[in-house]
């Protein structure tokens, strides 16, 4: 995130801290916020809602967000303010990790198929599943 975006986000987060409680901001869980961010960011894909929720549970296990009130507020602010994932490292990592934990790339980015969550430790559950490797793009096809 560059300095301008950082200042913008910090400013928005500060303003949001004052203005958003009336919108239920404080009662929104980080899970709801994370699920909302992923769903909004990938609104053009058919997402398996339960899979998104499971991903968020798995992703936040042992994540520093659990002990960082600042990060929790940051995440919720981004959710309420509709910040684009590419504008925030926290968000881009979240969406990036979700998408690479699914079968979306294994299905060659076919947007007509429902995107299914496989697991955050996909490499051990399903070895050889790097969707950009020669196993999915054999030499004769690239």
């Amino acid at each position: 995130m560059n300095r301008r975006n950082f200042l913008r986000l910090t400013g928005l987060a500060g303003a949001a801290l004052v203005a958003l409680p009336s919108l239920g901001f404080m009662s929104t869980s980080i899970k709801d916020a994370a699920v909302g961010i992923i769903t909004k960011e990938l609104s053009y894909l058919k997402l398996d809602k339960k899979g998104v929720e499971q991903f968020v549970d798995d992703y936040f296990k042992g994540h520093y967000i659990n002990s960082s009130l600042k990060t929790q507020i940051n995440l919720k602010s981004c959710y309420y303010l509709g910040v684009d994932a590419n504008e925030s490292r926290l968000l881009s990592k979240l969406v990036h990790n979700y998408l690479t934990s699914t079968d979306f790339f294994l299905n060659k980015m076919d947007e007509s198929k429902t995107v299914k969550y496989i697991g955050v430790n996909k490499s051990y559950k399903m070895p050889c599943s790097n969707p950009f490797s020669s196993f999915y793009y054999p030499p004769a096809t690239v």
Partner: peptide, 14 residues
């Protein structure tokens, strides 16, 4: 590097 990293832009993922 050949990790499964992506670019968060529809249609330009890789």
């Amino acid at each position: 590097n050949n990790a499964p990293y992506i670019r968060l832009e529809r249609g330009k993922w890789r």
